[in-house]
Design a protein around this nucleic acid. Structure first.
Lengths: 346, 346
DNA sequence: CGGATGCTCGCATTCGAAGTCAGTATCGCC
DNA sequence: GGCGATACTGACTTCGAATGCGAGCATCCG
């Protein structure tokens, strides 16, 4: 046995290692390791001695060293855009909770712009994470890169058309169709749409879903203006709608709730309109502010908690069994009838 | 030299290691390592060969193995309560941005209850993070534990009275005093306070600060009811205030914005009052919803971006130089005059 | 031409825990 | 008492990259 230089853990800064504990307890390093592994074959006496020494030294196993040998880092990367966390902090909270319940830590990557993903992706892989949850855009080549490394990953609320991937989604198009059904059923004839940023997959699905359903119901014209998911862009959106067409539509469908709230305020405070008396406004997401009494927005709520739980479960399953085939789990949104839209025939 | 078993990186799942690259490039592993270290002494030719081989194999250095030998994980733990991220997602986003600009990754720990900190703290230390940002409560013993391990850490918006620690704070009491000054200056005589959860340090400081200033200005009575930072508890708070005293105060000071928004809605929609005509309501935080036209809340905005930047800088400085003494950086809030409070003498 | 200098490079070791394997003690049982 | 089975334990190797040290080589100078 090679003799290890004496490095008393008592010394400043140096954390105790399993060797230190072994020395104090007068056992081998292997024994220390085993004592910290649940289910290992260790005698009662040995365990007591080791634990005593460990407590004395304040020993905690080094997760980095463990990861190196076990090839499991017990870390999962979560990639999320600033936007998503700003407007939908629940996503991150729920993901974090789900993973931590399973003993997995979240390594967080926030993207300012979705194009930053390239740099970030390399870093993610360097950190040997056990899985990746992507709440951001990814090209097929980038997916290749991750899969080639054998790292399980799931998309959150986005996907890829040209190949099978794991994804947890809310059926944006379906929700949009429901909203349209309601609005058309209540007799609304003219429609405006405030979309989200062009590079937001979710926005595109919602907008396209709404347009498709409108077309099916015989409504050919809907004016579309582009927003950026922000409250201010909702305000601007309504104004632009009026400028573009010279008048306001009966109903406005916004690609997310926050813009819908902006629209409502623009209608009420800048244009002196009654909502829903003069104009109906609906959103999409189901953020908490949508339920506040000042707004009481009609919207489609995404079951974030279930979606996060599903994403966590899918990752965990694939960590256990990497050969599981790609799977897509789609959740329906929940229609929330608020009073921001007239839902009965006038 | 021990002969390493041949493990072609091309094989499924096995990521290429520096040995694989070395073999392909017909150089030593050390050389590969050096090529990936900026500023190392490597000839032009060698670097080209290694980089070519690395590209072929899709080699990326293993950050875990690197951390083990360098004793730097390039990860920082951020501990944040669910509440904080829900009501103030900017904090996390800004911290994450600041660290990632400096090549540091964020290992996220969200706490459901602040008492969970014990378990979490052990895990944090196991992961050999280079620093810790604590946006949660910590006892002095827990601080000891971290310091003993030699891990730099800063509190975010909380601190400890009984010992010096690194902290970045917003001066909650000062902001509360400003709000009181404004309200009293405008002639408000009776006050209600909706506090936050008992275990929220921030809430206590705001509430105490307001009470202290009220007392200084000769106002002895202020009714206090307790909320939990949620919108609903703001609604309930206003109702409880009325029940407790039989009438409503001239002004209500809420320990955060979201409760203030709940108060406003309760006043307007449940009690048929005008805000600020019949009652003034102020909050604290400066969340985005506070600025929406339906509310236009008078509040004190915390300079989150600056605070996050300061926290990041303090950690980084202490990673470079662990001997720096404890430091506390306090930011003043920014008074935002909204129309939810009457700010002129009637 | 010899020696000094400065670059590059490879060897061997290191980080800390986990796991393999072989060896030892203990036990039950005939 | 002897045998095999079982329960523990320790020595050694492994994971993958970083790095101190010294060897090899080219360059430069006198």
């Amino acid at each position: 046995m090679k003799v290890r230089a004496i490095t008393p853990a008592e010394q400043a800064g140096n954390r105790a290692t399993s060797y230190d504990v072994a020395r104090v307890a007068r056992v081998s390093q292997s024994a220390v390791s085993r004592c910290f592994k649940p289910g290992a074959s260790v005698s009662r006496k040995m365990r007591a001695r080791v634990m005593k020494a460990a407590a004395e030294l304040g020993y905690q196993p080094n997760a980095i060293a463990r990861s190196l040998i076990t090839r499991r880092s017990n870390m999962v990367a979560v990639v999320i855009s600033q936007q998503t966390n700003r407007y939908y902090p629940e996503v991150l909270v729920e993901l974090s909770r789900g993973f931590s319940e399973r003993g997995i830590r979240v390594l967080l990557f926030t993207l300012e712009h979705e194009s930053d993903i390239d740099v970030v992706l390399e870093q993610i892989l360097q950190y040997q994470v056990d899985g990746v949850v992507e709440a951001a855009r990814l090209s097929s080549a980038q997916v290749d890169l991750i899969e080639q490394r054998g790292v399980p990953f799931v998309f959150f609320n986005r996907s890829l058309r040209d190949r099978p991937v794991n994804a947890v989604c809310c059926d944006q198009a379906e929700g949009a169709r429901w909203l349209v059904n309601r609005l058309v059923g209540a007799g609304h004839k003219s429609f405006g749409i405030v979309s989200g940023p062009k590079d937001s997959a979710v926005s595109v699905e919602r907008t396209q879903g709404a347009l498709a359903r409108l077309a099916e119901l015989g409504i050919k014209t809907a004016t579309i203006v582009q927003g950026d998911y922000s409250y201010d862009s909702g305000i601007a959106g309504l104004r632009t709608l009026r400028e573009k067409t010279g008048k306001l539509p009966d109903a406005v469908i916004c690609a997310n709730d926050v813009m819908a709230l902006g629209c409502m305020d623009a209608a009420r405070f800048q244009m002196g309109l009654k909502v829903p008396g003069d104009i109906s406004i609906v959103g999409f997401d189901g953020v908490s502010a949508a339920g506040w009494k000042s707004y009481d927005l009609t919207t489609v709520r995404q079951p974030v908690r279930s979606m996060a739980e599903a994403a966590v479960a899918m990752i965990m399953e694939r960590i256990e069994n990497p050969k599981l085939p790609p799977e897509k789990r789609t959740f329906s949104g929940i229609l929330v009838d608020g009073s921001s839209a007239r839902l009965q025939k006038a």
